[in-house]
């Protein structure tokens, strides 16, 4: 199956000039963990994830945060988060974005998402954002397909 049938056609996106504060609000209110960053023509130029935002607030500590024995100073985190919140998305977004097209196969996309530990990725048509493909949706689809075969 091609991912056109599985993708989410929501075009919610940030621009490079969007502030981190606004980006956080968009992620929160849309209940998404990352959002594509597009230019004025809708072309995907980056992606901003929660991870990028945490890294923006605590650049030196990000790796330490992964360590279960490390106890972060949340007061310090809040202070730094507020400080970077006025800065533009373009400074912290991931510029090397893995994108797919609507005609890519489910299996191919699932493999790349799993391999690169990506939860959601942009689907583009002529370079412009056409939607997002979610790893969870792919997994659910692959699982239900397996049921039919069993």
């Amino acid at each position: 199956m091609i991912i056109e049938e599985l993708m989410d056609r929501d075009l919610t996106a940030l621009t490079e000039d969007t502030s981190l504060a606004e980006a956080i609000e968009v992620l929160s209110i849309h209940r998404i963990s990352s959002a594509p960053v597009v230019d004025l023509d809708g072309k995907v130029v980056g992606i901003l994830s929660e991870k990028d935002i945490v890294r923006a607030a605590l650049p030196g500590y990000f790796e330490l945060l992964q360590d279960p024995t490390f106890i972060p100073d949340l007061g310090q985190f809040r202070f730094r988060l507020r400080r970077v919140s006025r800065e533009a998305v373009k400074k912290y977004m991931t510029k090397k974005v893995i994108t797919f097209t609507e005609n890519d196969s489910d299996f191919h996309v699932a493999m790349i998402l799993i391999k690169n530990n990506i939860k959601r990725a942009p689907v583009v048509r002529d370079g412009a954002l056409a939607g997002m493909i979610n790893r969870a949706d792919l997994l659910q689809h692959l699982m239900s397909e397996g049921k039919d075969d069993a």
């Binding site: 049938e5 056609r9 929501d10």
Partner: peptide, 18 residues
């Protein structure tokens, strides 16, 4: 609404508000 539109495979670009 967003979910219903998604199931109908209609592209959306809504601003979500409180």
């Amino acid at each position: 609404i967003r979910d219903a539109m998604r199931r109908m495979r209609i592209s959306t670009n809504f601003v979500h508000v409180k």
